[in-house]
Design a protein around this nucleic acid. Structure first.
Lengths: 162, 162
DNA sequence: GTTATTGCAAACATTTTGCACCAGC
DNA sequence: GCTGGTGCAAAATGTTTGCAATAAC
């Protein structure tokens, strides 16, 4: 686990509430039960702009739901992904990271600290699946990541080189 | 592990040998020792167009190098990646996959069988890192994947629905 | 001969699963 | 009340590491 309970960049509360309301409705439509665990996991993801892993979400909810099990977090996140309520963001390393923002957008991924931040570029948004993709492959999604080194990690690199 | 020893799409032998020669030279230049293990792992990757995981590489070399340990495969692959001799391909799931083709290209990833195949599109090759990326983020690489369902997995889906 | 590399086993990290109990609808 | 969801613990999967023996240069 990387982040403790330091204050992290978060989404505006009114937007979070709007998303949670939409989430409840979407669950009801699909016949998925709205449990306190599901709502808490979804809200954590909606609040948090840092694309937390399952373990991080679990840690953030320790106080609010002390009995919440990590297995439930995994199960819940998997069902959210299946229903298109969250997106899984793949990073160069192992742990899966999740994003409540399901609108098309890109990510900046730091290869040093593995931080993920949202990034939207009109030039990239316009790109569609190329016509040259073989027709027998049913393309569904164009996944674009910009991999590099974030500012804080650049500073650390310099420290090491002195 | 997915694939046994069924015949898989492979790179032309003469190209593989050329790549291996370049590999040896590059190692010598960088002062990296050319061991039988390294050469075997590199050759496996150069031959194989299916972007094998560390475990798959290890399995393919069982006969050739029975004592080769999986830990060595991991170590060797990591050093290759660090030296820019191979690329790590991230798939939606856990296991890391590797590619001896380090020239810029894209991948088609099947979200069902997790197969990865190379794909080159001029329209995507032209895309550079957008100017709108914040200057404090040192962008190094634009990573584009096309996620979807491959032909064989489409057939299997239909079977299930009957 | 020096030093990086290897094999082994054990640790570690992440994710999944079986099953009894519990709770949303 | 029915059915799906949860918690727990254990297993499965993927990757890393410490260390003594080994081999490349």
């Amino acid at each position: 686990m990387i982040n403790g309970n330091t204050s992290l960049p978060s989404r505006p509360p009114d937007q979070v509430e709007a998303w949670c309301a939409a989430f409840r409705q979407r669950c009801r439509e699909r016949g998925i039960r709205v449990t306190p665990q599901r709502l808490a996991v979804y809200r954590t993801l909606a609040q948090d702009l840092s694309h937390p892993s399952a373990d991080t979400v679990h840690g953030r909810l320790r106080q609010e739901l002390p009995t919440l099990s990590l297995a439930t977090v995994y199960r819940v996140l998997e069902s959210f992904e299946r229903e298109g309520l969250v997106r899984r963001v793949s990073t160069p390393d192992g742990a899966g990271r999740f994003d409540a923002n399901v609108r098309p957008h890109q990510h900046l991924v730091c290869r040093v600290c593995r931080g993920v931040s949202d990034f939207e570029a009109s030039s990239l948004a316009r790109i569609g699946v190329p016509r040259s993709v073989p027709t027998e492959f049913r393309a569904e999604e164009l996944d674009i990541r910009i991999v590099g080194v974030c500012r804080p990690c650049q500073s650390k690199e310099n420290d090491g080189n002195l």
